[in-house]
């Protein structure tokens, strides 16, 4: 159960000559729910793209499911929800079903038409996110929260073991956000999908995840107990600097309130 799904060792990366990640080490085990936070420009998205093999590291090693990323082939085991997924061209004439089915490309194979089993997988992914009744709808006729769910269903259609989400709550209202976090919780606890979630919402993420990793100034800080992060002003300063003190304080109050109620 606790075999490492992602192992990052001494990873360095940068754009041009400027390094933005230096000597990063991180281990993510099966069943983890890791929140990845950090200020703007702290390379959160870049870090995910390195794990996805979209970017090539300067130095260091990434192992996925025990295999070096350079020889890793089972990309269908990884679901990814990109940050810009919500801003995709919604005028595109495609139904919910067509978009979700497209991601089965590896399973269906080139030059082949999807079979019954593939269509069943699309149905099941849409049931999971609660969009089965809208499967024939055009993406342009859905709300922002529903569009986000379509992309989650698209990621889930391959039944991934690891799900990476980059700022999934951007442009989604509070009710939608609550639904999204509940869904992620369900995927993690019932389906045992390992989740890595990038977010700006430090307070909410801290309350939801099992572990927290903070990126800032080329470094990563990992907290096995997310509340440890918020409870120490030193941690906050280390990750966000002095400028975030007020905002963090506000979240601290919320978090304390939450634990008090519990």
């Amino acid at each position: 159960m606790n075999a490492p799904i992602i192992e990052v060792q001494n990873l360095s990366f940068g754009y041009g000559a400027r390094p933005i990640l230096k000597d990063i080490n991180l281990k993510v085990n099966a069943g983890d729910f890791l929140g990845l936070i950090g200020p703007n420009g702290s390379a959160k998205t870049t870090f995910l793209k390195l794990i996805l093999g979209i970017l090539k590291p300067w130095q260091g090693q990434i192992r996925l499911f025990g295999q070096d990323i350079t020889v890793f082939k089972r990309w269908d085991k990884i679901g990814y929800l990109a940050q810009k997924a919500a801003s995709v061209n919604i005028g595109f004439p495609a139904t919910v079903e067509e978009i979700v089915a497209a991601n089965l490309y590896r399973q269906v194979g080139p030059f082949r038409a999807p079979k019954k089993t593939h269509r069943a997988k699309v149905q099941s992914a849409l049931e999971t996110v609660g969009l089965i009744n809208k499967r024939k709808c055009l993406i342009g006729n859905l709300s922002g929260g529903e569009v986000q769910k379509v992309f989650i269903a698209r990621a889930l259609v391959n039944e991934p073991s690891l799900f990476l989400l980059d700022e999934p709550t951007v442009g989604v209202d509070l009710k939608g956000q609550e639904g999204l976090y509940e869904l992620l919780d369900r995927l993690n606890k019932q389906w045992h999908i390992t989740v890595i979630l990038i977010s700006h919402d430090v307070g909410v993420v801290t309350a939801r995840v099992k572990r927290l990793a903070c990126l800032n100034d080329t470094q990563i800080f990992v907290f096995d107990q997310p509340f440890d992060f918020l409870s120490s002003p030193d941690n906050l300063t280390k990750v966000y600097g002095q400028g975030m003190q007020t905002l963090i304080h506000c979240h601290q109050v919320n978090c304390k309130g939450r634990s008090f109620n519990a």
């Binding site: 990309w75 990109a82 995709v88 495609a94 067509e98 497209a102 490309y105 269906v108 080139p110 030059f111």
Partner: peptide, 22 residues
């Protein structure tokens, strides 16, 4: 006809298509 799946996915979203193996 043969590449309809690939053409659809690449037209809809290149990055996701690349990750899906297209």
């Amino acid at each position: 006809v043969f590449l309809r799946k690939e053409l659809f996915f690449v037209t809809f979203e290149e990055e996701a298509a690349r990750l899906a193996g297209v």
